[in-house]
Amino acid sequence: MNVTKKEYEELNKSRSPKSKLQKTLPKAFVAGGVICAIGQCLLMLYRYLGLEEETAGLAVSVTLITLSVLLTGLGLYDKLAKHGGAGTLVPITGFANSVAAPALEFKTEGYIAGIGAKMFLIAGPVIVYSTVAAVAYGVVYALMK
């Protein structure tokens, strides 16, 4: 080899195309914004229909989750996400997609080792670490009381 690993890294950097931020950022902003705006419309609708604030919030989540799982099953969510990027990843719909996609994909490995286990591929760490963080906050809060 005629270069060091460091020089190779430089070559790699100079040859690797960068993400086009001027394209990805507006797309993510719009995609995420639209999903949240839909959420807001639903929230206002459910409130108008007489649901209490907390129940209405849950109903919004469940509606968005249903839409996302449906789009995932139809093979459309990943096509939206190719453009939406973080705009489709960060909302609750992205979380639902991260559970539904492996559930569909690993159906071939059966209900236990396939669907049941692989659903948590991405959702697992999200639930684990946010729960642990919340427990830690609970302990601190109980101490301070």
Binding site: P17, T72, G75, K82, L89, S98, A101, L104, E105, L121
Partner: peptide
Amino acid sequence: ERQFRMPVNYGGQRTPT
């Protein structure tokens, strides 16, 4: 994809490289 990366229907963005 399913062995090395993510399920086919998962909405992850691919990097330019």
